[in-house]
Design a protein around this nucleic acid. Structure first.
Lengths: 146, 146
DNA sequence: CCTAATGTCTCTAGTAACTATAGGTTCAAG
DNA sequence: CTTGAACCTATAGTTACTAGAGACATTAGG
């Protein structure tokens, strides 16, 4: 059995975050030692590793809650799980494309900045102009959960 | 001159968000009509469009504040400008790298989810297993602020 | 065994960046 | 001139944590 600190070290999740996950019901209420300290077994460690990993991949906690409840009913189709992952992938692809465009603008700005004033800087103009922008202005799935 | 609703429609920013941006000083205090309603001109519209796009790209409001300060003071010395731009460029590069790793991970997960039942679905297993993961666990993949 | 350091406990409050609600005012169409 | 949409302020709620205070538990060294 691990204390909360050991569990945090083992999974890379901070101690207050573990307590927070318990509080919102993402982890079960922990067993307690004689001195009222939380104790964790392998099951909870695996569950927390899953949460950690899913969070790193940008899944919001509610999506993770869904995934965890789905995995408790392993006979159902994984279409729903796949859909969540697909949505995340689309959002990520869009972000990469837009960040590449911005990277180019910043690099050009830094180059131009070598000798002059920034009056010529086009970064703000470009970002402010829809015509120069490849973004789809629909809802950004990742924007919510960061 | 646009009302706040028209401005929101023109830029894709919700009305309460515009008022919030004014409140935190990201937008200037708006002109008011005789009936105390906010009125906006082209300058503020451009500024808000810039904020919208920068937010889509994941920049925190404080970074956007920095970027805007460049356009607010176009005579600013190039040294300071260069430092801010370089910092933003580094942030963008880091985000691209992490998003790229994330993209690969999601694609692999989806590839392994062949549409069967959850019992066979690799997505959940992959998410729980660090050994299948190429992500850098030292840092939050999606962390926005550097 | 005692002590000091570290770890853990609960609770509250703070953060970013909004979003929603309540209760009132103004504007534009019919 | 009325009606309904859009606007106003102010407050509170959201997500996913993070930080702090003050008290109890555990562990390593002497």
């Amino acid at each position: 059995m691990l204390t909360i600190g050991k569990l945090g070290a083992a999974t890379g999740v901070k101690v207050p975050t573990i307590r927070y996950y318990e509080q919102i019901g993402l982890l079960p209420d922990a067993e307690r030692s004689s001195g009222n300290q939380r104790l964790y077994g392998r099951t909870v460690q695996d569950r927390l590793a899953f949460i950690r990993h899913a969070r790193e991949l940008g899944f919001p906690l509610e999506a993770i809650r869904d995934l965890l409840s789905l995995s408790d009913r392993p006979d159902q189709s994984c279409t729903e799980v796949d859909a969540i992952a697909q949505a995340q992938l689309q959002a990520v692809k869009g972000r990469i494309a837009r960040l590449h465009a911005l990277k180019g603008e910043l690099e050009r700005m830094i180059g131009q900045c070598a000798g002059g004033s920034i009056a010529d800087c086009r970064v703000i103009e470009v970002l402010g102009n829809h015509l120069h922008c490849s973004a789809d202005h629909g809802r950004d799935l990742l924007a919510v959960s960061e």
